[in-house]
Amino acid sequence: MKKGKIEMLAIFFLLTCLLLLFTLFFHHHYMLTSVVFLTLTFIPFFIRFEKKNGSGRELVVLAILAAVASVSRIPFASIPSVQPMTFVIIMTGAVFGIESGFVVGALSAIVSNFFLYQGPWTVWQMYAWGLVGILAGLLKQTFFIETAIGRVIFGIVTGFLFSWIMNIWVVLTMVQNFSIEQVLVFYASSFPFDLSHALSNAFFLLVFAKRWISILTRFQKKYGLLE
């Protein structure tokens, strides 16, 4: 793993630790926690993306991918936890890298919620889907992206990861003075929905990933975008 990727992973790990600290000690101040965490998490990655000095064509490509991801979420909104948007975000990170995966993940969350419903959970969705894009970029050119079985495993893991992060938001808003036992019960009750997200990720990656990677990679090389 390259030095830059290790630094990105270390930064995100640190920010995740800060998130956990906020949720443990300041869960009575949920809105403040969300705003602080939004600032801590998003700014460094958008700054890093800005430093790449992307061309107009590259920004258009990411905007299109974010739009596709957002639109793909809407028809499945009535099916609990089936999120084709996650697939598009994974493909973006896998082909175009960490920063692109994060930007498309975070942007898709807020754009799709304009059609569904905005709320304090949007911040957490931006974080969770941004993390999925980062992980896909970190693991590009590895077993987890380059092989079918690896992509299935990656889809299942990130499906559960996204859902477990969103469960933190639900616990904070639904439970006051929560205990470990209450949290475990809630996570156990949400398992069928978490599994649905994980398996839908695996399905989309198994059926469509190879073709998407081929098309996006060919497009990237032809026009020299986001290399």
Results as ranks from 00 to 15, higher is better:
125 Q>K: 07
90 I>A: 05
123 V>M: 14
97 G>M: 09
73 R>H: 14
58 E>F: 11
124 W>E: 11
126 M>I: 05
60 V>C: 00
112 S>C: 03
39 T>I: 12
101 G>M: 15
132 V>D: 08
109 A>T: 00
75 P>D: 10
30 Y>L: 14
94 A>T: 15
85 M>Y: 02
68 V>H: 03
114 F>W: 07
117 Y>E: 12
30 Y>P: 02
38 L>Q: 13
82 V>K: 06
36 V>W: 07
87 F>Y: 06
102 F>A: 04
37 F>M: 08
50 E>C: 02
138 L>G: 00
120 P>R: 03
46 F>G: 03
31 M>H: 15
94 A>K: 14
87 F>I: 00
31 M>C: 12
105 G>T: 13
131 L>V: 01
51 K>W: 02
42 F>V: 01
63 A>L: 07
78 S>Q: 12
51 K>L: 02
115 F>E: 05
21 L>R: 04
77 A>C: 10
70 S>Q: 09
115 F>N: 04
123 V>W: 14
21 L>K: 07
71 V>N: 03
89 I>T: 01
71 V>P: 04
116 L>G: 06
127 Y>K: 01
59 L>P: 03
87 F>Q: 00
87 F>T: 02
126 M>G: 07
86 T>Y: 03
112 S>A: 12
128 A>Q: 06
49 F>R: 10
77 A>E: 14
138 L>M: 09
79 I>Q: 04
139 L>R: 01
92 T>V: 04
36 V>G: 02
28 H>L: 15
49 F>D: 09
130 G>S: 05
118 Q>H: 14
22 F>G: 12
141 Q>E: 00
122 T>Q: 08
41 T>A: 06
47 I>Q: 11
129 W>S: 06
50 E>W: 09
27 H>V: 04
39 T>W: 03
117 Y>P: 04
87 F>G: 02
31 M>I: 14
70 S>L: 07
133 G>P: 00
42 F>S: 03
87 F>P: 00
70 S>D: 11
47 I>T: 07
79 I>G: 04
74 I>R: 13
91 M>Q: 12
125 Q>F: 15
125 Q>Y: 15
19 L>T: 05
137 G>S: 00
124 W>H: 06
28 H>M: 13
50 E>L: 07
60 V>H: 03
105 G>C: 13
104 V>A: 10
117 Y>S: 14
141 Q>S: 00
129 W>N: 09
53 N>H: 08
95 V>N: 10
113 N>W: 00
137 G>V: 02
44 P>D: 10
45 F>C: 03
92 T>F: 09
70 S>F: 06
